[in-house]
Simulated assay, not measured.
Amino acid sequence: MRNDKDLALELVVEPTIDRRQLAPGLTGAIGEFTRNSSVYAYVDERQVAVQALLESSGFQRARVFVTMKKNLTDLDERADPGRVTGTVGFAAEYDQRVRQTCNEAFTEHWGTRPWSAEDWRDSVTGNEEFLPEHSFLHVDAGVVDAFLLASRSDHADGVEFDLIGTLEEVRGRGLATHLIRCASSSARASGFTVAWLIVDSSGDSAAPALYERAGFEAVGREFVFVSRTSPETPAGRPARLSRPAGGPGPTPP
């Protein structure tokens, strides 16, 4: 749940149960919530029965998030990610500037709202899984215009690239790709073997192609279903650190 007017659902349906018997009850329960709340369900692409149940209960599929992975053992430990003036490792002095840049970079993204200082501290840079030593920024004249924040993954020996973003005015310069190289090289040197991220592939998003060029491959999908009474965009963010389901939220290039 992302705020007092949003409800996120995770559903598991026993394959032997007739979903037609469940739909009326689910619809009724949803009706109670949607009087004052928005309902969003996150479903793995393999959960076909759950998808059918949601659709028969009045939900519509709204977004598709793709899980991507990169094998870090293929990297040469001695490989230099290259030099881009202004690239620095994450440090506490940049914390609030990164938050402000993240809010601006994600303004037009589905499922996001501005991070408050408190939420940012609790869910991102103050989270015990956050890895500042593998997080990188690009700073120009004191402004953080690109960032990559990493955390420890639920997968063994894995690192999660949770938030990657650039300000609109510097997009297309390869800054996100460079920060991915820096983070990948750093994580590889520390013994991580796989990097993970989840990206919104809906609409005309170019992010999946960017990550493929950076060495990631798609390994799974998660669908977001919304109740027909919900607004098109939830007043929350499906980022990994603020969702029990796992997986980072949309990451703009």
Rank of each mutant, 00 (worst) to 15 (best):
G111L: 00
E108V: 05
A176F: 00
E169L: 05
D4S: 13
S242F: 05
G89H: 06
N36L: 15
L7W: 11
R171H: 04
D44N: 10
V159C: 06
N3D: 12
S186M: 07
A62C: 09
V226Q: 07
G191R: 02
S151M: 06
V98N: 00
V39N: 01
D157K: 05
R35E: 13
D154C: 09
V64A: 11
A176H: 03
E217Y: 07
R19L: 13
D18N: 14
L179G: 03
V84H: 04
K69N: 13
L131G: 06
V48F: 09
P132E: 03
H155A: 15
E118R: 12
T229D: 15
R188A: 11
R83F: 08
L26H: 00
D95V: 04
L148K: 03
M1A: 08
P238F: 15
Y40G: 01
V48M: 08
T16P: 04
Q96L: 11
G165N: 00
L137V: 10
R243H: 11
F33I: 13
A91R: 11
V144D: 03
R99T: 05
W115E: 10
P234K: 02
G172N: 07
G28Q: 08
Y211M: 05
E10A: 13
S190C: 09
G247V: 02
V98M: 01
A52S: 12
V143G: 01
D157P: 01
R240F: 10
M68D: 11
R113F: 00
E14M: 11
G246Y: 08
Q21Y: 15
E10N: 12
E45A: 15
F33C: 14
L7N: 12
G236W: 08
L163C: 02
R228L: 10
C182W: 08
A206M: 05
T34P: 01
F225K: 12
R181F: 06
A206R: 15
Q100V: 05
T177M: 14
P81C: 09
Q51D: 04
A79N: 08
P114H: 00
N127Y: 01
G236T: 07
R99V: 03
A105W: 00
P248E: 04
A146V: 02
S56D: 07
Q21N: 09
